[in-house]
Design a binder for these strands. Structure first.
Length: 443
DNA sequence: CGTTTTTGACCGGCGC
DNA sequence: GCGCCGGTCAAAAACG
């Protein structure tokens, strides 16, 4: 297009020059006027093109907004349904951690198994909690209703979910993984059985946020960082933190679910791992957590801090149970607590949809023959700093992918829908946080 | 100067 | 009751 315009312009210039030699001043004036008209015409044509482009972009934007609204409406519909199903007068809700059960990762057939009404109600309640934690931006009309629901459920579900711990094992060279959230160190201890000190962090995104995390190097392999999350965020999260938060919260919920559904003798085995799990749903966090229900441990006795371990490392810990690498040592060392271990290792350089680790370090997921849970591919050389367009692409991919997951596994609907909502709603927030210039989550 | 990290003190739960 | 241990507090130091 550019080239054709140039050539035509060039010929007219030559033509003009040839005329100039013998043309009268009047003729010259007329030709200049004609040229101006041509320019005006071409400019008009350009503007028309730009307008069309603009209109097309507007259409696309409207479509995106429409999709967003649809997803949000679905989410709130689910909220309402779960709310109606709840039995708010159930006196056992508040303290009985063991009975907390979630549908997260549970197929409908699982639900029909043995769940009694109260239990399933609570499980949906908890599921709701998981889904609600990361969607507080409130930019849409439903947010007020959502917050109302949230406040009512907070006290019930927070009690339980707060107790669940999610331990993440990942290769990391720095003192802590960059999970996108903002943490402040408040203590450090040498714990028994591990020469490496354990650091205690609390979330500083919101002063009232109850979330804590413990960071400790694996004694057997100091390149492995064990990060244990406890509690749920009560504030909107930066987009870069939503993935980890969703993952840990979902894992915690699954753990609690498993606490009530665990069956004696259910032992993990490689056969329980579907190597094609990534086909179930492209989101590693959720689909594989769902998948990993198979790894619930039989222990369901009274335990103050049930723990679930997400293994993001390539190599199993050398001291891990002989049968399968996914079992964490915490299961052995803390037998009084139910512990579940999942491996999110990947055979490719996939990554959770957030930046785990600093710019100078690895992403915590390396080659592995374990469950392929990957979805969010990241260039291996990419650093922690993420450009805004990349984030947008990430959101886009996430949204599309999660939609597929929702269709394929109804049990994941609320959590996934929330993840989508949070990503969309928190997009601007994330950018603002990033613009603060702080290296989020790091000392 | 405000924020974060460090680090010893303190506290509560648990086992003996 | 005592000691151990994990977790938290808070004053001081360090940092930006």
């Amino acid at each position: 297009m550019e080239g054709t315009r140039k050539s035509s312009t060039g010929s007219s210039v030559n033509e003009e020059n040839s005329y100039n030699e013998s043309a009268s001043p009047e003729e010259k004036y007329c030709r200049k006027e004609a040229m101006k008209e041509d320019e005006v015409e071409s400019t008009k044509a350009k503007m028309t093109g730009v307008r069309e482009e603009n209109a097309r972009l507007k259409m696309q934007l409207q479509q995106i907004e429409k999709d967003h609204r649809t997803l949000q409406l679905r989410f709130f519909d689910i909220l309402r349904e779960t709310k109606q199903d709840n039995n708010p007068t159930d006196p056992t809700i508040e303290e009985d951690t063991e009975l907390v059960s979630l549908r997260l990762g549970m197929s409908s057939r699982d639900q029909s198994k043995k769940e009694e009404r109260n239990t399933s109600s609570r499980e949906e309640n908890e599921e709701l909690k998981v889904g609600s934690d990361y969607n507080l931006t409130g930019s849409e009309t439903g947010s007020m209703e959502f917050k109302t629901l949230r406040s009512e459920e907070d006290e019930l579900s927070q009690t339980n979910l707060k107790r669940a711990r999610v331990s993440v094992r990942a290769k990391c060279e720095t003192t802590t993984m960059n999970d996108g959230c903002q943490w402040r160190k408040y203590g450090q201890k040498i714990s028994k059985g591990n020469p490496c000190p354990r650091a205690y962090y609390r979330c500083t995104v919101s002063p009232s946020c109850p979330v804590r995390k413990q960071v400790q190097r694996c004694s057997e392999d100091t390149s492995i960082l064990i990060t244990t999350y406890e509690g749920t965020h009560n504030h909107p999260l930066p987009i870069s933190a939503t993935a980890m938060a969703s993952t840990t919260s979902a894992a915690a919920s699954m753990l609690l679910s498993g606490s009530s559904n665990s069956q004696p003798g259910l032992v993990s085995s490689p056969a329980n791992i579907d190597p094609t799990s990534s086909l179930r749903g492209p989101n590693p966090n959720l689909s594989d957590i769902s998948l990993a229900r198979a790894f619930y441990l039989p222990n369901s006795s009274s335990t103050p801090f049930p723990t679930i371990t997400l293994d993001l490392t390539t190599n199993p810990p050398t001291t891990a149970s002989s049968g399968f690498s996914m079992f964490s040592s915490s299961f052995k060392s803390i037998p009084r607590a139910p512990s579940t271990s999942l491996s999110f290792s990947s055979s490719e350089s996939y990554m959770l949809p957030t930046v785990w680790g600093n710019g100078s370090l690895n992403y915590g997921i390396y080659n592995s023959n374990h469950v392929s849970s990957a979805y969010f591919r990241r260039p291996s050389q990419e650093q922690s700093s993420q450009s805004y367009p990349e984030k947008l692409n990430q959101q886009e991919a996430l949204t599309q992918t999660l939609t597929t997951v929702i269709k394929s596994d109804p049990s994941l609907q609320s959590v996934i829908t929330t993840a989508i909502s949070s990503l969309v709603a928190n997009g601007s927030t994330a950018q603002v946080n990033k613009d603060k210039g702080k290296n989020i989550g790091q000392k």
